[in-house]
Design a protein around this nucleic acid. Structure first.
Lengths: 207, 207
DNA sequence: TCGTGTGAACTCTTTCACAGCG
DNA sequence: CGCTGTGAAAGAGTTCACACGA
């Protein structure tokens, strides 16, 4: 069975909400509630869940703890995954200490920058290195995810290096689309484009 | 004619690439080239463009300058839009000085934080205020877009305040889905969820 | 009754095929 | 030729309707 990207994304969100609900001590949640939280209809949510061979809780909705556990196992979302950040400008350093990553299963274990002077000035508890050591460190520390926070010009080059170094996934914050070899998952997060989308969207609404 | 979100998003990306191509001095671009750049097929791109009542250039592809101008006018992407950032932690301050916003039609004209001591310490060329003055400043400076960079707990409250203050669009970086009144466009950008998606995606690929 | 699970209907999006033009 | 524009076909994804279980 081949889940669509939309389905995977919704399930990831659901996982996040289950995590929050669990901490709040909520025991059951209905497809209707989940639908509101992820921004979809209850039908869609139930369909998504049914692709997983629905766990079969009923009457009160899904049992938060066991459902979260099930999802966690299915998508291996519980085991901590190691990530590194390349590019330690304003955004990169902000990301280095982004608490939410740690909170939810991801661990930033290294930072890289090509400016060696900058590396010495950075104050953080996370080890930082010159980009030239990327492959070496990715290998030594079993890093699975690369987060690109370099300027547009060097984004593709870093993506190539990450791919060569053997990461499995890349999150790209630079404002250009990167291309990666088959088999590596990547997501482009372009802030400017998001703003453009919002602007274009509300221009369209008026018509 | 009602463009789908996918179409709008692709067109925004196209606009971004046209901008880059123009600066490089490229005169023509084909649907095939654009397709590669935005990550879609040439058919989809041509269809998207045809929804706009295609400009009708042929043989060598689309003429970069006039096509960009056309899109810019159509979606009002050329006029500078004013934005503000709420929450001046690591991420918020990084965003304050994010050069790419300025580069491409967006201008951050104010920052807000509820911690008054923090406001006094921040060193930036952009004016910063206490959150209590949000409505006043949004109104006075004609701010159209709000960028939320506060912790999850206060995200919805800030979204409500932004909506009440009259912004037209919201870009939300906090890791919870916010809900906004009808008529306001918003996009959630959840970093942790993006990483989760990548992780889940490559787990699924193996199967 | 309330809420899930799921085949079937429906709707939206993408792909294809091909006409038309420089 | 090469590349666009677009109706028609194919393919996805979403919604609906309803059976079933507690």
């Amino acid at each position: 069975m081949d889940l669509s990207d939309n389905t995977i994304e919704r399930i990831c969100k659901i996982f996040g909400y289950l995590h929050a609900l669990e901490k709040k001590g909520v025991d059951f949640v209905s497809s209707k509630d989940l639908a509101k939280m992820v921004g979809a209809t209850e039908y869609t949510i139930r369909k998504d869940i049914s692709f997983l061979g629905g766990p079969g809780y009923t009457r009160k909705g899904y049992e938060v703890r066991s459902f979260k556990k099930e999802l966690g196992q299915r998508f291996q979302l519980t085991e901590k995954r190691k990530a590194c950040i390349i590019g330690l400008g304003r955004l990169g350093t902000a990301l280095l200490d982004y608490e939410n990553f740690q909170e939810d299963g991801f661990e930033i274990v290294a930072g890289f920058d090509c400016n060696v002077n900058k590396i010495e000035r950075i104050r953080t508890s996370i080890d930082v290195f010159a980009v030239s050591r990327l492959a070496e460190i990715v290998d030594a520390r079993n890093i699975e995810l690369g987060i690109i926070a370099v300027p547009a010009e060097s984004a593709q080059e870093i993506a190539d290096q990450l791919a060569a170094a053997g990461v499995k996934g890349i999150l790209n914050f630079s404002p250009v689309k990167i291309s990666v070899p088959e088999g590596i998952v990547h997501v482009d997060m372009d802030f400017t484009n998001a703003l453009r989308f919002i602007a274009a969207r509300f221009v369209m609404m008026k018509k």
